[in-house]
Write a protein that binds this DNA or RNA. Structure first.
Lengths: 110, 110
DNA sequence: TTAGTATATAACGATATAGTTGTATAGTCA
DNA sequence: TGACTATACAACTATATCGTTATATACTAA
């Protein structure tokens, strides 16, 4: 084990990837994609975000490999590239759960 | 399974937590803490960041439960609260590895 | 008490990015 | 061809946050 120092480049890469998941709008898009592929316009309808905004977020997620794209005529179908996103979000949700429970324990004990 | 819609509040909470990990300086601090507790001044020395900057980053990580603090006299010893951070970073590193390999495959095949 | 040290915090300037508006690209269909 | 549609992109404004400087807080020791 004993992993030594991570290079600044690697740290920056990791940070960039966390940053991609650090926006509610992008998390919402990823969540919508959990149900299956969707076109940009479908995601626009389902999220209430504007078309330009959705497109921009998807580009970022695509560039970092969180989603994949398939073109069909005029349409662009986006899908989740893998299920890392869920593993990552599940870890974060677990943290929040424990946090909440700890807070409740403190409140209960006074 | 079939998790339904995540509330905006939950999405914001998840986003906040990813945001905490979306800075190279904070990742560096967390990485340093992997070796064990450290005081603020020790982290300042080891990272080259300023005291105020380190302190501010640690406050954020503390408020979101990524690190814990123990006061001893003048000193504040920070430590990792759990090993979620490594699981999260390992997932991201795995993504980068696969990305790199895929890029190499493409280059090799021309 | 006063001096000194470790940490936290406030205020500020600089930079980054989310969301918008407008437009460009590219495919479909008459 | 031209009209229409879906998506991408450029330019802009507004906001958030990083890092800095200066200061406040809190503990120790003389």
């Amino acid at each position: 084990m004993a992993r030594k120092e991570l290079s600044p480049e690697l740290l920056a890469g990791i940070a960039d990837r966390f940053k991609a998941l650090a926006e509610p709008a992008r998390l919402q898009l990823l969540q919508r994609l959990r149900a299956g592929d969707a076109t940009v316009s479908a995601l626009v309808e389902r999220t209430g975000l504007t078309q330009a905004n959705v497109s921009k977020h998807l580009q970022l997620l695509l560039s970092l490999g969180f989603v994949a794209r398939r073109k069909e005529g005029l349409y662009a179908f986006y899908r989740l590239a893998d299920d890392d996103v869920f593993r990552l979000c599940d870890l974060m949700c677990g943290r929040m759960d424990r946090e909440l429970k700890a807070r409740q324990r403190i409140l209960a004990s006074r």
